[in-house]
Nucleic acid binder design. Structure first.
Lengths: 197, 197, 197, 197
DNA sequence: TCATAAGCGAGACGGTACGTCGTGTCTTACG
DNA sequence: CGTAAGACACGACGTACCGTCTCGCTTATGA
């Protein structure tokens, strides 16, 4: 889809870093609409020509920037609270915090680009779960070991519901999402579904 | 956000209809980004001046258009299949079809405007459930009467999960959503949650 | 040749004046090469779009500006010195002064455009003689009346030689042209040719 | 003006030849404005760096190219027609042909550079008369020997007028210049001036 | 009955960002 | 060391769209 990966031209890695970095900063500061490629070039001390030599335009650049951001995102620490409920709430909190923090500021402005690039959509989705899949799996393993869950419990239920509900709440409906909301999600939806036979 | 409702000027209702109609058509054809106000004016055989006299700009016009669209949307017929599962699948199908049909085409292009207008976000959300809340309530009542559900079952579970999961799948992840997906949603998530004690 | 005259669009005459005026100022200040259309637009408090709506580009604009300048150029005063030689020198001085003054500054930078527009070339030539043709004719008439010239003396000799020699000296060879040079031109070339039988 | 002559760096003469040659070709093909240094480098199979190491930019390169061209120009053969008028017309024809031939194509595009480099201007002027000065002198000598001209006739009259008139006609006014025009120039201007007492 | 005003279509305008192109600098690898 | 190759910063170009504005034209009222 015209991203940097498909481009034959060489790009000084240092230049790429600077441009991607400037893009992410400005995305967070101003959102997608108000993102100006002139401003990106200026902040990266790069030329617009360089920018266009390697990405086809704003959408493509933003896609690349967000993808890159996901890949370098910091893992959230793994918490072992001793109960399934406690672990679940910790992860839900982490997801919510990611969505409402800087990552979320970027994603808020990036949703249009997602319409045009399903690969980006996947990257965004990953960004919400990414590397947490292992954390979730370990969380489930611990719960199984404690006898809280059946031995064959998989991550599908969590993955299908939790990100969708939080994503929709935060990005589509724009609703603040507090501790009570997370508790209801865990107690009324996730735990019942995981523990039924 | 300066929508038509706040404007004192009179607008020939026929002109308004034409403009809103052209906006919706072009939204569906080209998406929000590529929507040109010149094109709206041309298609509505209206002047840009008229357009700006009554809406503050693209976002405002699109918000008004989508809201108006929701209000004139055709209700989906109510289906009584005789079982909770059958009714659920019928409603899920209707939601999916709305999201992947013309309404969805419009929403796809409208997501940016939603970031700027929580009222629109609400309207969009309503458009997904709108007037179906009553249908859902009646569906639940029939299931309760048949003894399929506890007497106090409310619409919250459905409303919290079904639109979020479908919305995320279709608009964010861009995944095709077929009968099997709907069945899994009903059988593995919605029905278990509704029928547990 | 794509000049304003061939354009169908309406242009506010006040805007046109401002743009042409700014163009002439900047031409004289910076020359053709360094003339920036952004600068023209800025100085004329006009939009670049307006500029391009009415002229195809720099060359076309400059052509129009110079032509317009010629048409509004101030006539040089007519001098009657009482002798053919005195009148000739007065006119040669006037031509030289025009070429080395602001008009010349403009022409210096405009020579490229002349390669592309023979109509402009004509305008430039006219600018060197323009309205002086009558002055020259009257000068010859006075000389004829005084018996200094044959009755059928025409302006051709003067027009063919004087502008060419001065133009070449000043613009092509870049040589300063002082009183002695003008005297030589009059005494050794123009007067002998006019007075021979 | 920073031409090659002032540069200390060594330049492979073969490289210089190739670059100058490419410059002249492209000058004749496209004119000064459309001359691209990238194109020069490409055609000369040289690097732009090499180019800038030895000339300061486009103007400087063009100046050098044109000067070099003049120095290697082929002399026109000397014609002895037996009469002053015949010889004059032969030379006028040669000058006209030079101006309208390949040299002229180059000069047409080079006039801007001339504004910036009086040395080039001199070279151009020379290119119009160059090495013809001797031819002209010999032509005059023959005419003197035949008794057609006074013994002290010099080349100044010819040099002052003929190139200026032809140059102006061809390059500034862009007028075709045919045999009749040359005849008029010789019969009405040059010969009368040379033969008067 | 007519004028006087309000809403309108048309479209030029100033402004801003876009994406492209050419110059002149610089770095890398080769001979 | 001088070169070919070519990426780069800079900055002007010419285009597209937005939101403002000024025109006449039409229509709908009130003197």
């Amino acid at each position: 889809m015209g991203s940097a990966a498909t481009t034959a031209l060489k790009l000084d890695p240092e230049r790429e870093r600077a441009i991607i970095h400037a893009t992410l900063e400005l995305l967070a500061e101003t959102g997608y609409d108000a993102l100006r490629l002139d401003a990106v070039a200026a902040r990266a001390k790069a030329s617009k020509a360089t920018l266009y030599r390697h990405w086809t335009g704003k959408a493509d650049l933003v896609v690349a920037a967000v993808k890159s951001y996901e890949h370098t995102d910091h893992l959230i620490g793994e918490t072992d609270t001793g109960t399934l409920r406690g672990d679940l709430l910790a992860i839900l909190r982490a997801i919510r915090d990611t969505m409402t923090g800087p990552t979320g500021q970027i994603l808020t402005g990036v949703m249009i680009a997602m319409q045009r690039d399903s690969e980006l959509a996947g990257a965004v989705r990953t960004s919400i779960l990414k590397d947490r899949q292992h954390i979730i799996q370990r969380m489930l393993d611990r719960a199984i070991a404690r006898g809280e869950l059946p031995a064959d419990t998989g991550t599908e239920i969590f993955e299908e519901i939790a990100p969708a509900v939080l994503f929709t709440r935060i990005f589509i409906l724009g609703r603040p999402t507090n501790e009570t909301d997370l508790t209801r999600l865990a107690d009324n939806i996730l735990i019942p579904l995981m523990t039924r036979h």
